[in-house]
Each structure stands twice: as structure tokens, then as C-alpha cells.
Design a protein around this nucleic acid. Structure first.
Lengths: 249, 249
DNA sequence: GATACAGGCTAACGTCGCGTAAGGGTCAAG
DNA sequence: CTTGACCCTTACGCGACGTTAGCCTGTATC
């Protein structure tokens, strides 16, 4: 019984792979057809189908073909170790991809604001992605509890709103600095005021979070090279002076 | 100013890439060093570092090197479209990896039970992974609300317990079938009883879920080839007969 | 001045899992 | 006897580098 045989095409369709894949596996010695016709056609049987499905399964969880062969051919392998390794590999990939996706989402948010596809846009986009990428590093400045607090308050909407407000403010500050606005002027002080409000919205009035945010900024010299201040040097100088006047006045 | 230059090794370390990568980018014309010494050594500057970091960033979100070059060199590209495409790609990968991880976790659960690393273990592991892989397909048999109900009741512990109980029961049934136990015997009826209890634990007494589970089994002929019944043919026949006797008696 | 060692260079093949021709044979139907 | 669907082998292509191999440069030490 069980004399049922298939030719490559049929067999491939049956298992959901391409003919080329079967050729490849044959070549590697991973899955040899049960028989050949006189003219050299490959003939696969039901047993081959079982084996192929095992191969597909192991491939699905990321095992390289070489190792699959060793596994199926019954060579002694540390199965538990293999599974753990594969899982850990996949989990790391997962973390990376998750980060990448988050980064892109942030960039997309920003791309909607600046509609012009000029060459500067790209630079900005990349900076935004970098910011998002350095999330882990930024987080290292806060305690577990503080992160918890921040996470609880952050809904998608508040994040989006905050980003819009920030990018607007940053643009305004850059312009003020470029136009040589007097840091002591009412206009400058209003900018400082807006910044304080946004920071307040972020910290939620938590003094510990505020303190660690200050610490992050005072560590500016040690920031990773991929992490950039959103302000130009001119704008930062402007801000510093404006803050000085604010305290005095 | 800004005359600072680095040789490959230093520059590579600075950016966290390998020397070979820099050679590669140079070859592709993606990142040419700012200058060369008389003897041909590559000399990189700070501007190169900026560009390299842009490259790394774009690579991080999955953009191919060719396209990165076009992007950075200011050729007009549909930036929003690019971001959307990358995000969708990554999201699909994310789904696949998530599935693979879940599958491995299930397999690991089972691997702890059978401590012997024999050749049969591998077969079982693969079956378990296949089962997990077909989760989506299985889910298509239930309504949204039912899936919701099932998800709410499933904690990691209950899942693990359930799996242990099932694998135990399946082993017992297989043995009974192999030993030619009379399907009408008390022993057989006890097995049926245990199965009913486990099914009850799964359905949580919900008649709709129970009904759809039955539907799933009666569709047996249309199951995907990767989805296998946990029972051998003999065991299934045994179960059917036993159930028949149970109804009559 | 010789030598050792670290680091640089180019050229070119290896990796992984196939996709994609190129060039030609097999087989049943019209 | 041709057509068209299917099969075969051989071999290069892809993407982003890793890895030799063989040779050159630059600095420190003997």
C-alpha cells in the first residue's frame, strides 16, 4: 500500500513550496525523492511529505538547513539547548524590530507635518529615528518607578500632541535665535514659558522625574554620538541666556 | 578647523561597525573617506561620521544600501511611501517571529516533560510546533467573542496544566488502544470521562465554544496537512467505539 | 640597521536560501 | 508531427558583509 507518488510540481504545491526549493533540498541531501522515473523525473511519496513538513517547521523557527538535516537524520543534538537558542535569537530580533517600527512611526508622525519632500526632511527624519532608537539609553536615566509613572500617563494621543507641540516650539525657538531676538525680551520669556509648560506636561509635576531630566541634560557631554540635541548651538545659547534673564528678572 | 581625521580602525570603533563594513561602503560608493594618505590609507573626518550614522540609522529600519545612497545623496524619493513600506515589512516580520516564538515556547513546555533526547522527541516537538503554527487557522473556527472568552480564561499556568494533562491523557489512550482494551470496559469509559473533563475545562461550559470545537473535528478531512490529530488512527477508532458504548450504556 | 608587531591595502571567494535564466529532454494531446 | 506543459542539470545573481591570502606601511625595540 501507500504507493502514491507525486512529481515535483504536484508535490511542491501539496506542501506549499516551490519546485526550486525541492531541487535545492535534493541537492543538499536534505530531502531526496523516494524514486526516479527512467527519464530522470523525481518521484516523491507520502513519507517524503512528512519529512518535508518537518523541514518546513524547523525552518519556520529559524533553524538553518544544515542543522535541520542533522536533527532529522537523528544525530544527537541538544534539543532543549537548540530550542532555547532559537527562542533567544528570535526574541532579540523581535526587540530590534519592535524598536525599528516604533522609530518609523515617530518619523511618520513628523513626515506628515513637513509636507515638502526636500533634502532637509530626510535629515530630520533620520534624527527622529535616532532619537527613538536611543530610547533605551534615555530610559536608563530614570528609575523603574518613574518609568512606570511615565508609561501610565502616555497614551498615543498625548504622545502625538506632545510631539507636535514640541516640534512647533523648537521651530519657533530656532527662528527667534536666528533673528537675533533679545533673550531678555518678553517674546523670549514666552518661549521659555512654553518650554516649561511642555516639560511640566512630560514630568507630570513629579519632582524626581524633573530632576533626572535635568541630570540627563547636564550629562550632555557624554551623550552617545547618535543622540542629538534638537536645538542648534545658537538656539541653545539663546535659551541659556533667556533662562538667566528669567531668573534675575 | 575640524581637521580631526581617523584611520579605518579607529573610525570603525567610533561608529560601532567593522573595518570590512567601511571597505564595503567605500566600494559601493556609499561612504568614501574624506582623504587618503600618500600610502593609500583611508582618512575619515567628522562629516563622514555623520554620514555613517545616517547610514546606520536607515539600515536599522531595513532600508537596503542602494536606496540609502539615493536617499542621502538627495535624489527625490517618496519618503512617506518608503517609511510606510518599511513599517509594513517589519510588522509582517514581527508577526512571523511572534508566531515562531510562541511555537518554540510550547515545544519547550513539552520538552521538559520528556527528558530523554531520543529520536522520537524531535518528531513530537515538531508536531507541537506545527500545532502552534496553525493557531490562526484553528482560531478561524471561533467567533470573535468566543476567542475573547478563551483568551480571558487562559493564564500561563492554566495553559501549562492543560497541556500536561492532555499529553498524559493522550499517552494513556494510545496505550489502551495498543493493548487492545475493550472500548466498552470501565477503563475505557474512564478515559472518555477524563477527556470530557479536559474539554469542559477548555470550553468553560460554553455551549457555543463546544459546538464549534465539534465542528472543527468533523471538518477533519479538510485540515491543512501540517495540522495533525494528536491520536493515531487506532486510538481514534478506539475513542469512537468507546464513545458509542458510552452513549448506549 | 634589522626586526618584530600592529595595522593598512586590494582581490576574491564563502555564506544562506533560494530566484532566475539558459539550454535541452519527456510526454500526452491535437 | 508539432504544440504545450512539464521535467532535467548547470550556473550565475542577490545582500551585506565575513574571511582568508598576500603584500605594504609605520612605529617601537633590540
Amino acid at each position: 500500500m501507500n504507493q502514491r507518488t507525486y512529481r515535483v510540481r504536484q508535490f511542491a504545491k501539496l506542501a506549499g513550496v516551490t519546485v526550486r526549493t525541492l531541487h535545492h533540498y535534493d541537492h543538499l541531501g536534505l530531502l531526496k525523492p523516494r524514486a526516479h522515473t527512467e527519464s530522470g523525473y523525481r518521484l516523491y511519496g507520502d513519507l517524503d511529505l512528512v519529512r518535508l513538513q518537518q523541514i518546513i517547521t524547523l525552518k519556520f523557527i529559524g533553524v538553518p538547513l544544515q542543522q535541520i538535516r542533522e536533527l532529522i537524520d537523528g544525530q544527537a543534538v541538544d534539543l532543549a539547548g537548540l530550542l532555547r537558542m532559537q527562542r533567544m535569537m528570535l526574541e532579540e530580533q523581535q526587540r530590534n524590530i519592535e524598536q525599528a517600527i516604533q522609530a518609523i512611526r515617530q518619523a511618520e508622525n513628523l513626515a506628515l507635518a513637513g509636507t515638502e519632500p526636500d533634502s532637509e526632511t530626510i535629515t530630520k527624519i533620520i534624527e527622529v529615528i535616532n532619537m527613538a532608537t536611543n530610547n533605551e539609553w534615555v530610559n536608563s536615566y530614570y528609575t523603574q518607578e518613574q518609568l512606570q509613572t511615565l508609561a501610565e500617563r502616555a497614551t498615543p494621543e498625548t504622545i502625538a500632541e506632545g510631539q507636535n507641540a514640541w516640534s512647533q516650539l523648537i521651530a519657533d525657538i530656532e527662528q527667534a535665535a536666528a533673528n537675533g531676538v533679545d533673550p531678555a525680551s518678553k517674546e523670549a520669556q514666552q518661549l521659555i514659558q512654553r518650554q516649561e509648560e511642555l516639560i511640566g506636561g512630560f514630568t507630570g509635576g513629579d519632582p524626581g522625574i524633573r530632576e533626572n531630566l535635568n541630570k540627563l541634560w547636564s550629562d550632555k557631554g557624554n551623550w552617545p554620538t547618535t543622540f542629538k540635541s534638537p536645538y542648534s548651538q545658537a538656539a541653545e545659547a539663546f535659551l541659556e541666556q533667556a533662562r538667566g534673564h528669567g531668573k534675575q528678572g
